[in-house]
Design a protein around this nucleic acid. Structure first.
Length: 434
RNA sequence: GGGGAGAUACCAGAGUGGCCAAAUGGGACAGACUGUAAAUCUGUUGUUUCGACUUCGAAGGUUCGAAUCCUUCUCUCCCCA
């Protein structure tokens, strides 16, 4: 099987190189990719029922891969997810039960379908699930056919294993690299997939695959990894105070999603815009020039946030997020807020966390601390709420709460129904009274 | 099977009879400054009706008084065979 590569104008490796998306690449990989159409895959770990933005890196990788005329395959790890990847983990993982796993695989599959083209001729994308070839594979068969080819010494030399020798690691996790390695072998043998990609933490696992292919069949396969994204301040990418940033709107509203990108630091944005958007090199450089000339306009962050919000969600979601942001962070004042119509108010705060409180409770006036702790879950304890108020960190309807004894009543409601509570500068909560 | 080490707040990690709601560092949150950025500085980080109350793996015990001493239990790690 040897297919003609259909679109040669964009060279995959060159493209990744200037975007800073290459950590390691196996010798010969680039030559192969420039010569012919190649099928390549990336594995996704079904630990949650939605992909997070961290997973957007491999998604973008597959997208570039397809745009360069190659055939992208996304592998969802129905089988590997049952074992647990030790890479990058310092402790033994908890295993998910089968039902959860199936659910997660199905959800991730649906999300992946949004980004790749599954109907464009020979290089159409595909999704495979490694559970399909592992479900009928018995333990004895596996250790005879696969385990026999790879030595323990080889497996133990891997960083993912070495790092865990101190704290211990189960046989299950130890065998993970073999299971993943076999995926590569299986795909290489049955689907002519010659390349596996992934994050740099996957290098060891990927190489076990190419090694297995070489020893078992004398075949050749290739590998390419991306650097792990780190924020300039060294903290983990893709997380905020309130947790992971997910692609699923039900888990992370488009508003929050948009805000996440908008809030990225200048330094990080330069990295992100190369990785997460499809802007060309020239476009990015001109955006950077514009940004440097007037940093307070945050040209880069806006371009990044817009592009990715539209691609992950939709244009309408993006517009709503911008509108909400304008009102919350623009010249929005207490008066401006009062003037909002009910529909506008609701659409603006669609993605903001909401709480309901009954009418009578507010009618006569209610203490602010009680309102934000007991009636709603904005603060976990009264002590904390008081301290925050004393530190000037709480506002109601854009007006700072001066002391903890203050009470609020029906007169302060917006449209006689809503109240906007702010914890710090960026965390908004809507209280609906009625 | 034998020997050893250990379990303290979100994490790391001091504390080995009262001065301990528990050092220090990190993280997190907030304030100031800004550009909804970064850096910096400051504050907070068990609950509370501010009188207290419940915390140091679990349960008991000794004591006027326990994270600290004793007993049992649970769990974790390391080394040897």
């Amino acid at each position: 099987m040897h297919l003609e590569k259909k679109d040669m104008e964009k060279k995959f490796v060159d493209e990744l190189r200037w975007r800073g998306m290459i950590q390691d690449i196996m010798p010969g990989t680039e030559e192969l990719l420039n010569k012919q159409m190649v099928a390549g895959y990336i594995g996704f770990d079904p630990t949650a029922d939605s992909l997070g933005i961290g997973n957007m890196v491999p998604v973008m990788l597959l997208l570039h891969f397809q745009q360069a005329g190659h055939k992208p395959i996304a592998l969802v790890g129905g089988a590997t997810g049952m074992v647990g990847d030790p890479s990058g983990k310092s402790a033994e993982r908890n295993l998910l039960d089968e039902a959860t796993l199936n659910h997660n695989v199905a959800c991730q599959k649906k999300q992946l379908e949004k980004f790749l083209d599954f109907n464009c001729g020979p290089n159409s994308a595909e999704i495979v699930n490694n559970y399909d070839w592992f479900k009928g594979f018995s333990f004895l068969e596996f250790i005879r056919d696969v385990g026999k080819h790879i030595s323990i010494n080889y497996m133990m030399a891997k960083d993912s294993v070495k790092n865990r020798m101190e704290n211990g690691m189960s046989f299950t996790e130890f065998s993970y690299q073999l299971v993943q390695g076999y995926d590569f072998y299986h795909l290489w043998k049955n689907k002519n997939i010659q390349l596996q990609m992934g994050g740099s933490d996957q290098w060891g696992n990927i190489v076990t695959g190419t090694e297995l292919i070489r020893r078992k069949s004398g075949g050749e396969a290739f590998a390419l990894t991306t650097p792990l994204i780190k924020k300039a301040d060294g903290t983990k990418f893709g997380k905020t105070e309130s947790g992971n940033i997910w692609l699923d709107k039900a888990k992370t509203s488009p508003y929050k999603f948009y805000q996440f990108w908008l809030n990225a630091s200048d330094e990080d944005t330069k990295t992100y815009i190369r990785i997460f958007t499809l802007f060309t090199k020239e476009e990015i450089e001109s955006l950077e020039t514009a940004h440097a000339a007037a940093p307070h306009l945050r040209t880069l962050q806006k371009a990044l946030a817009k592009d990715i919000t539209i691609r992950v969600h939709s244009e309408a979601d993006f517009n709503a997020a911008v509108e909400a942001s304008e009102i919350l962070f623009g010249k929005g004042t207490a008066e401006g807020l009062q003037k909002l119509s009910e529909e506008d108010f609701l659409s603006v705060f669609e993605g903001v966390e909401q709480f309901a409180v009954s009418g009578q409770e507010v009618e006569a006036g209610i203490n602010i601390v009680e309102l934000i702790t007991e009636k709603t879950k904005i603060f976990p304890s009264k002590g904390e709420a008081r301290k925050m108020i004393q530190g000037g960190g709480v506002s109601v309807n854009k007006t700072k709460v001066e002391n903890a004894e203050m009470s609020v009543n029906a007169e302060q409601l917006i449209n006689n129904k809503y109240m906007l509570v702010q914890k710090g500068k960026k965390n908004y909560y809507v209280i609906k009274v009625g």
